[in-house]
Computed example of a mutant assay.
Amino acid sequence: EKHRLLSETQAKQIQLKEQQQARDTLATKIKAMESKLLVGGKSIVDHTNEQQKRLEQHRLEIAEQKRKEREMEQQLMTKDEAQLERKDTYTSLQQEVEIKTKKLKK
């Protein structure tokens, strides 16, 4: 009976060790998963929200830059037209009226 109790005790110890190892393995896996979810002490949700805010800020900056480019292009066109008008010398009043009428239609 002693041998039977001893073998049962040893079997329970082995079973407990296996359970402890399984628990340790699971704990390690959980920590690994948690570390993947944390980036620099921030959760993925916070990190994603932060990236979305940066992305939106960049979009706004690009839109503003495009608007400024359009303004500058419009100013250049206006200056070019003004220079062309100064350079144009008209042989008659009729020619001047025709050219300016074409520009207005354009």
Rank of each mutant, 00 (worst) to 15 (best):
R23A: 11
T101S: 15
Q15K: 10
K42S: 03
K87G: 00
A22G: 02
D24K: 09
E56Y: 06
K66N: 11
V97K: 12
V97M: 13
R67E: 07
E34Y: 02
T48W: 10
Q21V: 11
K87F: 09
L37A: 09
Q19W: 01
T28E: 14
S92P: 00
A82Q: 15
T28L: 12
L76H: 14
S35E: 14
T28K: 15
R54N: 11
L6T: 03
K105L: 15
Q74E: 11
M77Y: 07
I62G: 03
Q51K: 14
G40Y: 00
I99V: 15
L6W: 06
I30A: 05
E96P: 02
R70N: 04
T101V: 06
R23W: 01
K2C: 06
K12E: 14
M72L: 15
Q13C: 13
T91N: 08
L93G: 05
L93T: 07
Q52P: 02
L55R: 11
G40R: 03
H3W: 11
K66P: 02
Q65I: 10
L37Y: 13
E85N: 09
H3C: 08
L55K: 14
D80C: 02
L104F: 04
E85K: 15
A22K: 08
Q95F: 01
I62F: 08
Q15P: 00
L5K: 13
E34D: 08
H47P: 00
V97W: 12
R54Q: 15
K87I: 11
K36T: 04
A82G: 01
K29Y: 06
R54S: 09
Q52D: 15
K12Q: 14
I44W: 03
Q74N: 10
Q20C: 06
Q21Y: 02
L55T: 12
G40M: 03
E61K: 07
Q95D: 07
E56P: 00
S43L: 03
S35N: 12
E50S: 11
S43F: 01
R70A: 05
A27G: 02
Q10I: 14
K53A: 10
S7A: 09
L16G: 01
G40H: 01
T101Q: 10
Q20I: 14
R23M: 10
D46T: 08
Q94E: 13
E96S: 05
T48E: 04
K53S: 04
S92M: 03
K53W: 01
R86N: 03
Q21P: 00
L26R: 02
A27L: 09
L38A: 08
S7M: 12
A11Q: 06
K66L: 09
E1Y: 08
A27M: 07
V97C: 07
M77H: 08
Y90P: 01
I44M: 10
D80R: 15
K42V: 03
K29D: 06
